[in-house]
Design a protein around this nucleic acid. Structure first.
Lengths: 181, 181
DNA sequence: ACCTGAACACCGTTCAAGT
DNA sequence: ACCTGAACACCGTTCAAGT
């Protein structure tokens, strides 16, 4: 990448992070271009779709979640591992308001820039779930997609201003549903 | 209301129901006006906000839910009553894709056209929950807002094409979390 | 190579002008 | 009273023209 292009890319990512934090996943791309002092076309070329931009914004979080899953897969009680990772996943999805809908849709859309990451997230959760099920501490009638859906539902609730205050409590209720106490 | 105004109102409601069923709660009001063969301003006066339109569309369902809650409040096992009503509530909220976000936001917005109905829905659920808790068949650490949030989360999941197929299963998982088995 | 910004087809809101 | 539709300020996408 040319030096000026890289500079634009990085500036866009910084600005986009701020704008999407403020306005949510549906933030105006025009507004991002303006605040980055860049042409509208420049946003489009660096990020051909909105998903591509969200993927770049979520990149770091996804990588951390992957690493955390790997650590947790062999360590400690299986129930605690699943609970801990699930909490981290929901927290990551809640970083940017409204991003969870794209993350859920991406699972079934191979063309989405978020597809690979989201499939990986589901797989990581599924591995932790399988261990918990094998240890007899998790419901056996749910699979990785159910778990992903429940985490998505929690992230959605956390996105709603009227519900955000009970997000932690709702997490406990749903975690109790998954993990047999 | 004048005869021609009433005719427009009813035509708009019919068309809006079709369009919102197809496109979801964010459907273009301009499109609704066009398909109803009515000026754009006519839509705005009959329904000053999008919430007002959604309220009119959901009216029948809300009334049915209120009646159903009244019937269920005194009849049969408290756990079954809550489960049955919750299922009906989620089904109603899923009639129009994306409407659940407005229904959740309306709880905290007294100015929303959906406010009164949604507060009433929460209250109806809370009464059924309280009876189930009194009978020892429901978690005692949740209240009407938590229940509303969980129902909302389920409706959200049902709205996502990637998750719709497991909506019933997810309902069972969350119902099990609320209702002690 | 990369960037810019005008052109285009949308959107919701507002409101002057008509019937 | 009620309706219409133009005016306005937005949006995302596309792409010809510049550097």
């Amino acid at each position: 990448m040319r030096a000026d292009a890289r500079k634009n890319y990085e500036r866009l990512l910084t600005v986009a992070s701020a704008v999407v934090t403020e306005e949510g996943a549906g933030a105006s791309l025009r507004d991002i271009a303006r605040r980055a002092e860049v042409g509208l076309g420049t946003v489009q070329r660096h990020f051909p779709t909105r998903e591509a931009l969200l993927e770049a914004l979520l990149r770091t979080g996804f990588d951390q979640l992957t690493a955390e899953a790997a650590e947790l897969e062999g360590a400690g009680p299986a129930g605690d591992a699943l609970r801990t990772w699930l909490r981290a996943f929901v927290a990551c999805a809640t970083d940017y308001q409204g991003v969870i809908a794209s993350m859920v849709a991406a699972i079934e859309d191979p063309d989405s820039a978020l597809h690979a990451s989201c499939v990986a997230m589901r797989a990581a959760g599924a591995r932790l779930l399988a261990r918990a099920q094998a240890d007899g501490v998790a419901r056996t009638d749910i699979d990785g997609t159910d778990l992903y859906a429940l985490a998505g539902a929690l992230a959605w609730a956390g996105d709603q201003p009227a519900l955000a205050a009970r997000a932690d409590h709702l997490f406990d209720v749903i975690a109790d549903a998954v993990l047999t106490r």
